[in-house]
């Protein structure tokens, strides 16, 4: 099983990109908690906090796993300009396995919690079945690489569609930026799926993901640093 693949110049850089993603998630998490303290009646904040906490933990698990892959006892092979890191039977493998599994399951659950912000009340049974299928998908993604990214993409697409509907309704400029950011992250997922056919698309995916999170950060900064900017068409 190939764990990570990248050109030499990119080797280990994905950790930096993931650290930036974590920082963006943390910023939003901290501000969500602050605003929740101001308005505890708004249950959507509680969901937002739960979602971004889960996503942050998932990325931390990914960073930990990749760190072990790159800098610990793993087999690294040079194939021309491509460096491929293979799993080796070592103590590190258990940490890598559980780390990546936690990343896949928690990131899907975190995103689903975010999606729940935009859904009407649903029964606990529906929630349980959906959550079970998502966890299963995250687990099976460990065996079938593309499955995780396809599931993540579908949930993300659902979020983008919901956000787009809200944008049409309320017309906030920052919502549009957020939609662009999420769309970039969706595109990065497609690149990760294509890694099965083109190893280089992993790097493209990571760079696009960085651009996506940067756009999310920009929309967030526009709210917190530069004050209200509301664009109305009427």
């Amino acid at each position: 099983m190939i764990l990570v693949s990248a050109d030499n110049w990119f080797y280990g850089k994905d950790i930096i990109i993931d650290v930036i993603s974590v920082l963006v998630l943390l910023f939003i998490l901290i501000y969500s908690a602050r605003y929740y303290a101001l308005n505890k009646k708004e249950k959507k904040y509680a969901l937002l906090i739960a979602s971004f906490s889960t996503l942050t933990i998932s990325f931390l698990a990914k960073i930990l796993s990749h760190f072990i892959i790159y800098y610990r006892d793993t087999g690294v092979k040079q194939m021309g300009v491509i460096t491929v890191t293979y799993q080796t039977i070592s103590q590190s493998y258990a940490l890598i396995f559980w780390g990546l599994l936690a990343y896949r399951i928690l990131s899907i659950i975190g995103l689903y919690l975010f999606y729940l912000i935009y859904t009407e009340k649903t029964s606990k049974l529906n929630l349980f079945i959906t959550a079970y299928l998502l966890v299963l998908s995250g687990y099976l993604g460990h065996i079938e690489y593309a499955l995780y990214h396809i599931t993540f993409s579908l949930v993300l697409l659902a979020v983008i569609l919901r956000l787009s509907a809200r944008y049409k309704e309320k017309n906030y400029h920052t919502t549009k930026l957020l939609i662009y950011g999420f769309s970039m992250i969706l595109l990065s997922q497609i690149c990760f799926i294509l890694t099965l056919y083109y190893l280089q698309s992993y790097m493209a995916g990571e760079i696009i993901q960085l651009a996506g999170y940067s756009l999310v950060l920009l929309s967030f900064l526009k709210v917190t640093r530069f004050g209200p900017k509301k664009k109305r068409t009427a």
Partner: peptide, 16 residues
């Protein structure tokens, strides 16, 4: 008040 405005804009961004 500035915090409240930010909060409203934050909610708007996420489409609350």
């Amino acid at each position: 008040m500035q915090k409240l405005r930010e909060m409203k804009e934050f909610e708007g961004m996420f489409g609350f």
